[in-house]
């Protein structure tokens, strides 16, 4: 069982994650919002570019519609992704721009969370996580 701590006084749950470069020779840390209402795990395009990923290797171009408009992005598999003390190889992320003012570089969505069993203890500021079986 892994335990991740967060600040329970904040409006949202902020956590940290890592993404490895295509050949795993380097890795980049970033701050993310844990969002159980998001299907995909989102990362801003700059992070992937810095690590040497190319949008041409993406699997699919995407369009996300929200209350504030229409955002284009793409899906791409990263060599390795890690968050909440667990890592996943060949993990698909949704690359999409996010407003600068948020101070984050991505969102953890159910595409990663469904690999885990987790318990969010909001008052305590703790997330208890174990790898899901099967």
């Amino acid at each position: 069982m892994k335990v991740t701590h967060f600040d329970p006084e904040r409006d949202l749950i902020f956590v940290e994650g890592w993404i490895w470069s295509p050949r795993a020779e380097s890795r980049r840390q970033l701050r993310l919002v844990l969002d159980t209402g998001a299907a995909e795990t989102i990362v801003v395009p700059e992070v992937l570019d810095e690590l040497g990923y190319n949008p041409r290797h993406g699997e699919q171009i995407t369009v996300m519609r929200s209350a504030v408009g229409r955002e284009e992005g793409y899906l791409i598999r990263v060599m390795r992704f890690s968050c909440l003390g667990h890592r996943e190889d060949d993990f698909r992320v949704h690359v999409q721009d996010l407003p600068e003012g948020w101070g984050i570089e991505g969102l953890i969505g159910l595409s990663f969370l469904r690999l885990l069993n987790y318990e969010i203890r909001s008052r305590e500021g703790r997330i208890l996580v174990e790898r899901a079986e099967g």
């Binding site: 470069s21 890795r27 840390q29 970033l30 701050r31 040497g52 101070g103 969102l107």
Partner: peptide, 20 residues
């Protein structure tokens, strides 16, 4: 920076807001 360092991170030092 990745030409000289294996691990690099970037973080905002101000208030975090997150999605609307």
């Amino acid at each position: 920076a990745f030409q000289h360092h294996r691990e690099v991170g970037s973080f905002w030092t101000g208030k975090l807001r997150g999605p609307i």
